[in-house]
């Protein structure tokens, strides 16, 4: 099962490499990874997605929790949550295709953020599935470049991940 694991970690040099290193060291996969500072300059928030059985994930979260730099950790997929992945994608858009790309972008509620005679650069955010669907809706030959932020997530309602 796909899991979204999100953690607060000390904003210290080496912290990120410890988390990432743990995955290769213990044979786990990271599908997406997103890290950025928070409102508290001493902490950064790291969110990653991975796939594994319950037992697998339990072992993994125990190992992550053991890292001295990891302050708090939550498996967002255990409860109601919101996840967002952000994509910037460059599409070849010429002739009749130009209109079609714009139409699909509107359907997906994407934004065209840059325009050149032959290319649209589109910004789209949502769940990873939604971004995948958008990519699938574009003709492969027309996709010039894709960049995604990786999933960031937060739980719904009153629950917060904070100190």
């Amino acid at each position: 099962m796909r899991r979204i694991i999100s953690m607060l970690m000390e904003n210290e040099p080496g912290a990120l490499s410890r988390v990432v290193g743990l995955f290769s060291q213990r044979g786990y996969n990271i599908e997406t990874l997103n890290v950025a500072p928070t409102d508290d300059a001493t902490l950064s928030r790291l969110t990653l997605t991975t796939v594994g059985t319950d037992l697998h994930i339990e072992k993994l979260t125990k190992q992550l929790n053991k890292l001295v730099d990891v302050v708090k950790l939550v498996d967002l997929t255990e409860g109601a949550h919101i996840e967002r992945d952000m994509m910037l994608i460059k599409i070849r858009a010429t002739g009749a295709a130009r209109e079609e790309v714009k139409r699909v972008t509107d359907i997906f509620r994407g934004q065209i953020v840059d325009v050149s005679p032959n290319v649209y650069t589109i910004q789209l955010s949502g769940t990873s599935d939604k971004l995948d669907s958008f990519v699938a809706a574009m003709a492969e030959a027309d996709i010039l470049e894709v960049v995604r932020s990786g999933v960031a997530g937060i739980s719904r309602g009153e629950k917060v991940l904070s100190l």
Binding site: P13, G14, S17, R18, G21, Q25, V68
Partner: peptide
């Protein structure tokens, strides 16, 4: 050293 020893230490510090 921090990198080389990473998987075999409980923790490590780099003095800044």
């Amino acid at each position: 050293m921090i990198g080389i020893s990473r998987p075999i230490v409980k923790h490590s510090f780099m003095v800044k």
